[in-house]
Amino acid sequence: MAQFNDIIHQPVRLKIMATLKALPRGEQLEFVRLRAIVEATEGNLGAHIGTLEKAGYVMVEKDFIGKKPRTRIAISASGRSAFDQHVAYLHGILGISG
């Protein structure tokens, strides 16, 4: 059943989830690239990713390339489902089928 999701509905988090959902299953996106896509500051994006990670909607992987830190983010199965339900809810209130 489609339902409103107040965690996902926030504009920056909605952009993050839409971006990650567009990736093939299992693919990750580097933090720097995601920041450019959603047009957020590092701190703002980091806080929103933290909220989504706490909800179980995204997975964050941190490692190093040589001495340079790298953070990659992927949507989880529950995040994919929650996003689909939220989009279905929005379609429902707009009278859009599908």
Rank of each mutant, 00 (worst) to 15 (best):
F31P: 03
G56D: 03
Q28L: 15
R33A: 15
E39H: 15
G43H: 11
I65A: 12
F64K: 10
A40S: 15
G46H: 02
K67D: 10
Y57R: 00
K68G: 05
I73P: 00
I75S: 01
S76V: 08
T71W: 04
T51I: 13
T51E: 13
G46N: 06
V58C: 02
I75E: 01
I49H: 00
V38C: 12
R35A: 14
V38W: 07
E61A: 08
E30W: 07
D63L: 08
E61R: 09
E53L: 04
R72P: 05
L29R: 08
A36W: 10
I65T: 08
M59Y: 03
A47G: 10
T41D: 14
G46V: 02
A55R: 01
T41K: 14
R70H: 09
A47P: 03
G43I: 08
R70F: 06
G50R: 07
P69Q: 06
L45I: 04
I49Y: 00
G26L: 13
G56S: 04
P69H: 06
E30M: 13
E30I: 10
E42A: 11
L52P: 00
D63K: 09
K54N: 05
I73F: 03
Y57V: 00
E30G: 13
M59T: 05
I75H: 01
D63H: 10
L29H: 07
A36S: 15
Q28P: 04
R35M: 15
S76P: 06
F31H: 09
R70K: 14
K62L: 03
G66W: 02
G43S: 13
T51W: 06
I73V: 15
F31C: 07
T51K: 09
S76C: 14
A55T: 02
G43C: 11
V60Y: 02
T41L: 11
L29M: 15
G26E: 13
T51A: 11
E39D: 15
A47R: 11
I65K: 07
G50D: 08
T71V: 11
T51G: 05
G43V: 10
E42S: 11
E61G: 05
D63C: 07
A74L: 07
T41C: 10
T41A: 14
D63P: 00
G26W: 11
G46K: 01
N44K: 14
